[in-house]
Nucleic acid binder design. Structure first.
Lengths: 212, 212
DNA sequence: AAAAAACTTGACCGATTGGTCAAAGCGCCC
DNA sequence: GGGCGCTTTGACCAATCGGTCAAGTTTTTT
């Protein structure tokens, strides 16, 4: 009925299927350890078919990393829509912890990419991340100048939030092992999130309202 | 003069040379992306010679990961030799930040290994890390019970310290990019360390004495 | 219904992988 | 100085890698 759209949907669904398989494989084996054959097996498709949609391994990988990057930046909205540091930083931590729980594989692919020197997405780092970071650092500085929180270097605070939240994705295997072999349950996740939020906000001298 | 010892030293020095090259290559490319040929090139030795000292790629990798694990645990001494949370937790953070700066490649290999499900050192995790973590959590709980710091779940505090300090190793490339392309200098490292320490200790309600 | 476009896939390719091996080299002791 | 054990290394191997391709199938357009 909608020729162009129907075809587009067909293609989009298959690409999605391939991308999900690839994300899993790249997260579990790294770029070098991942093989197109394994991605094909997980997607339950012939290898040649994957090469029809994504011509090279790098192209497939790049699509995944840049997608994660976008999801990453969405959590920033908590920052912009906030009226002060408690809501802004607290909301940002919450959002990042949610992503950490629901998008652990994406976080791992990102971590692996950056750890190896960001050979594929260095341009993203330089063009987008730098601007984003500078913008958020300015907001934090505004709050400091207004006496709404203690004076710290905003950059190192951001690194701390990134590190702490993403740790629950990247090291989920270690956390699970230390939890007796079972992943954190809902209660433990809530407690982890609250602990992270509580220590950082308290450490910044920000008084917290209600909300556990 | 000392035949056995001389031979032993010979072997030990060459193994050290290979291990250093391998650590660098594994850190930069991951286990899957690393090749024995590249390790051989970095060590400036024929590939077959490396296989004389380390029969398989896994054996070489295992030696590196377990070595890092040992270095990791040494930082724990700050915990045991302390008289209270300010000295114990603060000293632990300092020690981990120092390792993060001087041993970034080791941290990356460790992170990569854990991220991929710890296929090689799962036994270390289960035998050593669990015990170590439980022991340190007990110490923290003691301080909480004595009213020396705020009540938080010790585990999530440890995860926070690990995440924050190791982030400066694992994501050093990202941090360098955000720093305008140059690595953090001495002053910036000191400030980063102080910020991490300050936020966490303050967040735990621990009053800090002197020492910047 | 037929032509055109989009999609699927088994077979295949050169390059590279981790690892082997036998022959040569080396240092050391009797 | 001759022999012995440790070390070195180029050549080599089967397996696997990312990627190609042409022949076939399905879907869409006319």
């Amino acid at each position: 009925m909608k020729p162009a759209t129907r075809t587009s949907n067909r293609r989009r669904e298959k690409e999605k299927r391939i991308l999900e398989a690839a994300e899993k494989v790249f997260a579990e084996a790294g770029f070098g350890g991942a093989t197109m054959q394994l991605i094909a097996d997980v997607a339950d498709l012939p290898k040649a078919n994957i090469h029809y949609y994504f011509q090279t391994k790098e192209e497939l990988y790049r699509r995944i990393v840049s997608h994660i990057f976008d999801v990453w930046l969405e959590a920033a909205q908590a920052f912009d829509e906030s009226s002060g540091p408690a809501e802004g930083i607290g909301g940002y931590i919450d959002a990042k912890m949610e992503i950490a729980r629901r998008h652990p594989m994406g976080s791992k692919v990102w971590a692996s990419e950056v750890m190896h020197g960001a050979p594929v997405i260095q341009d993203y780092l330089e063009e987008v991340l730098i601007d984003w970071t500078n913008g958020r650092a300015e907001v934090i500085q505004t709050w400091i100048d207004a006496g709404q929180m203690r004076a710290i270097e905003p950059r190192y605070l951001l690194y701390m939030i990134w590190a702490t939240t993403q740790h629950y994705s990247d090291f989920d295997h270690q956390i699970t092992t230390l939890n007796g072999g079972t992943p954190l349950d809902d209660t433990q996740w809530a407690q982890a999130k609250h602990t992270v939020r509580d220590i950082i906000l308290t450490g910044l001298g920000i008084s917290q309202d209600s909300q556990a």
